[in-house]
């Protein structure tokens, strides 16, 4: 579960995140939409403990992040926009390494099982990551979350640059995780994918959460309209 209470971050005179309140429950997939600089990545960086908030608080499964940085990381998995792994190691080795240093020792069968569950083709298991496409690397990222048995998943524009098929596969994987009870926060520009997979959608602008929707209660057209209105863009005339 992810909770933020009036979470704010200020750099000098610039407020990059302004009193953000979120409550993402187990099994929820919350998509944060917004233009570049809206504060989506800052939110994720704060939840990862990479930066300290100026004010407010945030919690992972009820644990305050600022007070328990290591403990909260045990519960969460993170997939950045461009997931970089060790190019000289294979998918299995990368998975073994990142799980191992986090204290999660797995055997070969378990490692291969998680990669399979994440949708990576068997032939790629022992190939070096340097030969992988971005979509394949993102699948290893999902395998990492599965291996870690993370209850919280943070995703920062994970589908940008993926072809529609890979993006669709990735969406399906996230839905599987959601069904397992994982609380997911995904920052994205992809309105279509957000509508497809999210349970909740929030639109951010200038560090503020401007609007929130339950995904099932809004159509893609209305979501796009709301987004453009929030961004103060003129709608394209079709």
């Amino acid at each position: 579960m992810i909770t933020t209470n009036n979470l704010s971050k200020v750099y000098g005179d610039i407020t990059v995140l302004d009193s953000l309140n979120l409550n993402i429950k187990a099994g929820d997939l919350y998509c944060l939409l917004g233009a570049n600089g809206a504060g989506k990545t800052t939110t994720i960086n704060l939840l990862l403990g990479f930066i300290k908030p100026t004010s407010g608080s945030s919690f992972i499964n009820g644990l305050a992040i600022s007070e328990n940085p290591k403990k909260t990381k045990k519960h969460l998995a993170y997939i950045p926009e461009n997931l970089m792994l060790y190019p000289n190691l294979s998918a299995v080795e990368n998975l073994d390494y990142f799980s191992g240093i986090g204290g999660n020792q797995l055997n070969k069968a378990q490692l291969e099982g998680f990669l399979e569950e994440a949708g990576l083709q068997t032939s790629a298991f022992h190939q070096r990551i340097s030969t992988f496409s971005k979509g394949m690397r993102q699948k290893v990222g999902i395998a990492l979350a599965l291996a870690k048995d993370a209850s919280v998943l943070l995703l920062d524009e994970p589908t940008s640059g993926l072809d529609p098929k890979a993006s669709n596969e990735f969406g399906l994987l996230l839905q599987k995780l959601r069904n397992k009870g994982v609380a997911i926060l995904m920052a994205t520009h992809d309105l279509f994918r957000a509508k497809e997979i999210a349970t909740h959608i929030g639109i951010m602008k200038n560090g503020q959460l401007k609007q929130e929707f339950v995904a099932d209660e809004i159509s893609l057209g209305d979501l796009e309209h709301a987004y453009l209105k929030t961004m103060e863009y003129k709608e394209a005339v079709l």
């Binding site: 290591k70 990381k73 970089m84 792994l85 060790y86 990142f98 240093i101």
Partner: peptide, 14 residues
Amino acid sequence: ESGTLRLLASQPIS
């Protein structure tokens, strides 16, 4: 510089 630090720093390690 290679981008692996973010993934590393998200693990429960010092």
